[in-house]
Design a protein around this nucleic acid. Structure first.
Lengths: 266, 266
DNA sequence: CCGAAAATGAACGAATCTGATCTGATCTCT
DNA sequence: AGAGATCAGATCAGATTCGTTCATTTTCGG
């Protein structure tokens, strides 16, 4: 059923849908099948067929879970699926967090899919200096000529594509920026931000220490959760950006400890 | 029965109807057959006939379900696979270069699409330590748990996804590994390896300086070419991995300067 | 007024598109 | 290395659309 509406809407033909798919892939470098299906309002089967046709024309490369640009650049295909989880909340949080950034700022961005989404929103800013230990964040900004991206050195932690270890911490030592945008696996009022990995926690601490203000990006699934290692105490957190499904009581506790709340409406 | 009046009302001629169809398509970009039939007060069969005639004149494109503007969809078709060039050579070179790596090695890998391909071949090795300034190389190894990947810090150079600048060079300063696998844009016997960018050249020099032996990966399109900035002189190069389409005379010259040749058969 | 030619509309079978579901393959995590 | 989850491919069913043929209407010329 192409579109059987009676009046206002513009029909979407197969060729047009494929064109749109191509544009999406070109814009993001790599897009998951699920995202594409949602974007063009079709089933995954149909998108899969379109991708097959487009691939046979050499216009894109197909991978497990999605498609990428043809050529050798942009090989982040296997990490794309993770992004699709609760993407609505992530997207809203990223939007809201991006409004806390001003042109000319120097900021630190930590690893995580939410911060990656946040980084994509930064491309419209100018004269930005971004320090990060996340390869995904760096790639998200790679095509923005007006943003200077600096990566910390360090040992690569494969699953999250972030740099950890003493080299990473050392390269952050002498740094001082306005705000740090970091994420984590859990956030409570008692123990603050926490992650399950020691090395990641150490770097997160260094990231937070390099900034005057700490901004935490955490969707509602992380609020009230406690992971193994504490990275930043609630007292050190200046801003929290979350979505409106977060438990109210925890938010109130955090607010009592001086955390300014930014709640995105889904 | 288009119009049964005898005099007063204006009948809708075929040419006029087609003109109106064209206007509708031009105004909306894409219109479904059903909408068109309703708009011009004719049957779908008639509209279909009109569309066929208009398409044969090149005034619009016909699709399943309707028609669109011509040329709008195929405007990107010229992009068709110009990137995949010499991928067979790259692959063969990468295979051969990977055979120069042994388990337990510590190596340095520079940026480039060929070295990226080379890095993919390393995943079957164990106990490897890889230092790189290329995000693509790092990602290629991210899923290999038996390989320790270390990234240099530095400023991100977007187009090639590599880290450059003083921070990158500094993090390589105290390093000493067995072999460096680097690439470039040109290689001659006189001026050695060269690239068009100064910052990239500086880091390449640092990469080469960190290794006991320098291995250059360069397909035949780069042999005999000279780019702006010299990175490594021919005397400093210990191995060259290339393909059998490389010009023989240049290879001989390089061999005379002490470069050991590894020529991949395509 | 009548007949031929063109155009329009209706109907039927064929082709196409889309989505659901099942099965095998691939990937990830433990 | 194996279990579980996810994804790709294939087949089938439903719906829509297309092409063709045929009947009807309209137009034009004699």
């Amino acid at each position: 059923m192409v579109d059987t509406d009676s009046d206002g809407r513009r029909p979407v033909f197969a060729a047009e849908r494929r064109q749109r798919i191509l544009e999406l892939v070109r814009a993001n470098g790599a897009v998951s099948l699920r995202e594409l299906a949602q974007a063009v309002q079709s089933s995954e089967v149909t998108v899969r067929r379109d991708l097959r046709a487009l691939e046979s024309e050499g216009l894109l490369n197909r991978h497990h879970g999605g498609a990428t640009l043809p050529g050798d650049l942009n090989r982040e295909a296997s990490y794309v699926q993770k992004v699709t989880l609760s993407s609505a909340e992530k997207s809203a949080i990223a939007d809201l967090a991006a409004s806390l950034v001003e042109d000319g700022d120097a900021i630190v961005v930590g690893p995580g899919t939410t911060t990656q989404e946040f980084a994509r929103r930064l491309s419209r800013h100018t004269e930005l200096a971004v320090v990060t230990n996340s390869l995904l964040v760096a790639q998200a900004l790679a095509n923005s000529p007006r943003i200077e991206v600096m990566l910390t050195g360090g040992t690569l932690r494969g699953p999250i594509l972030a740099l950890v270890g003493s080299a990473a911490e050392r390269s952050l030592a002498g740094l001082r920026v306005r705000r740090a945008f970091i994420s984590g696996n859990g956030l409570t009022a008692d123990r603050g931000l926490s992650t399950p990995n020691m090395q990641v926690a150490c770097v997160d601490q260094a990231l937070a220490a390099a900034a005057e203000e700490v901004v935490v990006l955490a969707d509602h699934t992380k609020i009230g959760i406690d992971a193994m290692v504490q990275t930043v105490s609630a007292e050190q957190i200046d801003h929290l950006v979350t979505d409106d499904a977060a438990p109210r009581d925890v938010l109130d506790e955090l607010s009592g400890k001086g955390v300014r709340l930014h709640v995105a409406q889904i």
